[in-house]
Design a protein around this nucleic acid. Structure first.
Length: 423
RNA sequence: GGAGAGAUGGCCGAGUUGGUUGAAGGCGCACGCUUGGAAAGCGUGUGUACGUCUAAACCGCGUACCGCGGGUUCGAAUCCCGCUCUCUCCGCCA
């Protein structure tokens, strides 16, 4: 959420931010609501003060066994007036909140301005794109020939955009989860969390998924519960409505969860294989920091995610997303894109964002440095998306005979398995 | 699923014939005194938000907040209704 005071005092900052993101929102309407709210609130409070004074008088009269009927009658009208005004305050505040909740975060000045992914900026690359002396297969073909990925069976069970992993394929997913969690907890200092996979609307709103992106998530019928679209949602809400002490920050959490996404509006996009699924596994990184720490912490968070790709020996590049490609809650986002031989291009495998105080305002998460509590900054990143890592391994480490080499770092997690062969 | 109990400040815990209770008391915490130093003891202080004041902030002033949301009333932590959560017992279940 945007600080209403910024909008009130320096509306040009918000206007510019919206322009960069190509959002069209009527800020003047919001400002009018804000003014009207403050006026009405003031009026109510004046009346309440009067009511409180009178109430004290009535109390005294009653105790002195004197007649208070006239004073009570006089306050009746004040009371009615307060009720009417309070109703108006409620309405105005609701409208104001509704409108503020759809305002996106303000992009950081270092973010390239542009309409879409074409304006993203390359930061660096790592690793060599592998060369093959045979015709490469994509992960669907590799996986199906090895009998470890079964899309037909998944379709039978659940429909389109699901995958069933079998044997070494299932083991590979599990190994990747364990490997990533181990690296982040043992080497990068994150605390492992296993959160609920169903969350309330309040959590979804705190993380910025609601109200704007309801159609992209799955909701449990008849209950106020949503399937997590990312572990970011439960992790954000761990400290909802809390005031931490400055010494506790930064707090670093990592969590494995499945991620459920309806992928509404992506019909016909990435329909082949397990690139875009309704359900995929992910190990997430999440940080709560002070405003001073957050930009450095974003850099280290990206490096933590990069470590995984490096340890697996997968070529990748780091992109800074442009204002047009960036997520709603983010002030700056780096995407890690892994090389996929089956597609002959880089594809997103991790997205690392500094949401600054945007989620902290929505979820009311503060810390105390001196006297006054201040909003924290929150950061999140995939470390990494497991499904896409499987794709990358199957495609990058495939051999002419259809077998796939297991990266060294993963072998101990797979019972010493060095190679996945047919049968 | 059935029956019952409960939800008050960082924590514990008073307050239910509605009326100076933001809320007794205790613990904790902070500062000061005391001490060679510490403990004990003594004293003072110790929520948040919004509004207002201010160049801004502090302070001050006002308002709200006793799980959440409504209602009754001149006035609600206290009464009524709905919801959420926690606990106990029974049933079911991994």
């Amino acid at each position: 959420m945007i600080d209403i005071r910024i909008l009130r005092e320096s509306p040009e900052i918000i206007k510019e931010a919206l322009a960069k993101r190509a959002y069209r929102i009527d800020l003047d309407a919001i400002l009018t609501l804000d003014t009207s709210r403050r006026q009405t609130v003031h009026e109510v409070e004046q009346l309440r003060a009067e009511q409180n004074r009178a109430s004290e008088e009535i109390s005294k009269l009653k105790r002195a066994k004197q007649d208070a009927a006239s004073a009570i009658a006089a306050m009746k009208t004040v009371s009615d007036r307060i009720k009417a005004l309070e109703e108006r305050v409620r309405e105005t505040e609701q409208q104001l909140r509704d409108q503020c909740l759809v305002l996106p975060n303000i992009p950081h000045e270092s973010v390239p301005v542009g309409p879409d992914e074409s304006a993203n900026r390359l930061e660096r690359s790592w690793g060599d794109v592998p060369q093959f002396d045979f015709e490469v297969r994509d992960h669907v073909e590799v996986g199906q020939r090895l009998g470890i990925l079964d899309f037909d069976c998944a379709a039978k069970i659940s429909g389109a955009r699901f995958t069933l992993s079998r044997g070494a394929g299932a083991l590979l997913e599990r190994a990747l989860i364990n490997f990533m969690l181990d690296v982040h907890t043992h080497q990068h200092g994150y605390t492992e969390i296993l959160p609920p996979f169903l969350v309330s609307s309040a959590c979804m709103q705190g993380a910025g998924q609601l109200p704007k992106f309801a159609e992209e998530a799955f909701r449990v019928e008849g209950r106020d519960l949503w399937l997590v679209p990312t572990a970011e949602v439960p992790l954000t809400n761990i400290h909802r409505d809390e005031i931490l002490s400055a010494e506790q920050l930064p707090l670093k959490y990592t969590a494995y969860t499945p991620s459920f996404r309806s992928e509404a509006g992506s019909y016909g996009k990435d329909t082949r294989g397990m690139l875009r699924q309704h359900q995929f596994n992910k190990v997430e990184l999440y940080k709560f920091t002070t405003p001073e720490q957050s930009w450095d912490e974003l850099e280290s968070l990206v490096r933590d995610a990069e470590t995984i790709l490096q340890r697996l020996g997968l070529a990748y590049r780091v992109m800074t997303l442009s204002t047009g490609d960036m997520g709603f809650a983010s002030a700056k986002t780096y995407d890690l894109e892994v090389w996929l031989p089956g597609q002959g291009r880089y594809r997103e495998i991790s997205s690392c964002s500094n949401c600054t105080d945007f989620q902290a305002r929505r979820a009311n998460m503060r810390y105390r440095r001196d006297k006054k509590p201040e909003f924290m900054h929150t950061l999140n990143g995939s470390g990494l998306a497991i499904g896409r890592t499987v794709i990358a391994i199957l495609e990058n480490f495939q051999r002419k005979d259809g077998s796939v080499l297991i990266p060294n770092a993963l072998q101990t997690y797979m019972g010493g398995l060095e190679i996945i062969k047919r049968g």
